[in-house]
């Protein structure tokens, strides 16, 4: 089976008004949600942070910057996308740089990918989504998780028109 983004988005993996002091704390909080639901092992947090230091994942999207931290599937049990809307932005290194260029990131899309071959379609959907300024603006002002899910579903539907 090939997954679409909606298949991998669960309400328990969406976090609103996340209070994180820095990028590492944000990654720890989001991976904790995946560990709690059994989608990842505790070591996944370390994997993601190590990878983030070597290959930063901040992206200068509009109207707010985002980050898409991820890691190898070693400590992933089930694929999932975890979304964290931050209460206050934190610095992530910009993708394609050595991390010395920093971006103040408002939304983190943490990807746990188990079977890379089956998730190409999902990742391409995500790449399309994050290029929608209307969606990102909607996410930072969303009131609750359901609104986040609705906004994503709406944006995906519009892409298919």
């Amino acid at each position: 089976m090939h997954y679409t983004l909606v298949d991998l988005l669960k309400s328990e993996h969406i976090m609103m008004a996340v209070q994180a002091a820095d990028a590492k704390a944000a990654i720890e909080l989001l991976t904790a949600a995946l560990v709690e639901s059994g989608y990842a092992e505790p070591e996944f947090s370390v994997d993601v942070w190590k990878r983030e230091l070597a290959f930063p994942t901040g992206l200068p999207t509009q109207p707010v910057a985002i980050a898409i931290p991820h890691a190898d599937p070693d400590h992933v049990n089930n694929s999932a996308v975890c979304i964290g809307v931050l209460a206050t932005p934190v610095e992530f290194g910009q993708m394609g740089t050595d991390g010395s260029i920093k971006l103040l990131v408002n939304i983190v899309f943490l990807l746990a990918i188990k079977e890379r071959e089956k998730q190409v379609a999902m990742i391409q959907q995500l790449i399309t989504l994050i290029q929608s300024p209307a969606l990102l603006a909607g996410l930072i002002s969303a009131k609750d998780k359901n609104q986040v899910l609705d906004l994503i579903q709406q944006t995906l539907n519009e892409e298919h028109k």
Binding site: F55, H70, G96, L111, R116, V120
Partner: peptide, 15 residues
């Protein structure tokens, strides 16, 4: 004229 990205990451390659 993209930046250099990690060849071992499916996300980076698709980007």
């Amino acid at each position: 004229a993209s930046a250099w990205v990690d060849a071992k990451s499916i996300i980076s390659i698709l980007m």
